[in-house]
């Protein structure tokens, strides 16, 4: 475990405020489910948000607003049933209720599937599963990308990422970390940009696969 592999304060603040993009929020929520110390910071920031809400100058609602709300309470049918769980019980809770696309082959020992979470423009959520000793696919960084390790571990030249660790990659990053655990490494990522398929296979596949 590496203490640095946590979201920046700005990102935790944006997550709490609800201003983080949806795909990034899904990855951060996953990290929080795995890291109580980050969840604690978010809980504290939510208390700050509550204080901020409490301190706002109120703006009166129309006179019949309460009556209308109570009338809706009368006829309220309750919460809509939550969507069903997906086929991967090993996923942390924040990822369990999203439908998942089919696994797709990206190269030797590398597979991905879409998580049907809200997108934000080109940015979407994917699961990546990479076998021991294999490298993650190269990808262009159109924007910031967030990765959270769910199981297994990968390493770059200088750093190691284990379950719960969050990696923030900037547009300048073009690294190709390698899986260093005995088991396959499963990650969830908010990806903004296109994956470049590795090697000749990628070059051959490119016309056929839109990743």
């Amino acid at each position: 475990m590496n203490a640095r592999h946590i979201p920046s304060d700005d990102r935790l603040l944006a997550y709490t405020a609800g201003t983080l993009s949806a795909p990034e929020a899904v990855v951060v929520a996953t990290h929080l489910a795995l890291r109580p110390e980050s969840a604690r910071v978010v809980r504290s920031l939510t208390e700050v948000a509550g204080e901020v809400l409490d301190g706002l100058e109120p703006i009166a609602l129309s006179d019949d607003a309460l009556e209308a709300a109570l009338a809706r309470v009368e006829t309220d049918g309750g919460e809509v049933a939550p969507p069903p769980l997906n086929d991967m019980p090993e996923l942390p809770e924040p990822l369990r209720r999203y439908a998942l696309g089919p696994w797709r082959w990206l190269g030797p020992g590398v597979r991905m599937r879409d998580v049907h979470a809200p997108r934000d423009g080109e940015c979407r959520v994917i699961l990546l599963k990479i076998d021991p000793g294999k490298s993650t696919p190269r990808h262009t960084h159109g924007g910031v990308e967030l990765t959270c390790v769910l199981s297994g571990a990968y390493a770059t030249d200088s750093e190691r990422f284990e379950p719960g660790d969050l990696e923030e990659a900037g547009p300048e990053t073009l690294h190709q970390p390698r899986v260093v655990s005995d088991e396959a490494c499963l990650c969830v990522a908010a990806l903004d940009g296109q994956i470049i398929l590795p090697g000749v296979a990628g070059w051959l596949m490119k016309p056929f696969v839109r990743m």
Partner: peptide
């Protein structure tokens, strides 16, 4: 906040955001 995120998603016809429950 969760209602607001859901509202924005619904306008974009997207699935609901993860619940961020303190």
């Amino acid at each position: 906040r969760n209602r607001r995120l859901d509202m924005i998603r619904r306008e974009k016809r997207q699935p609901p955001a993860p619940e961020l429950d303190p």
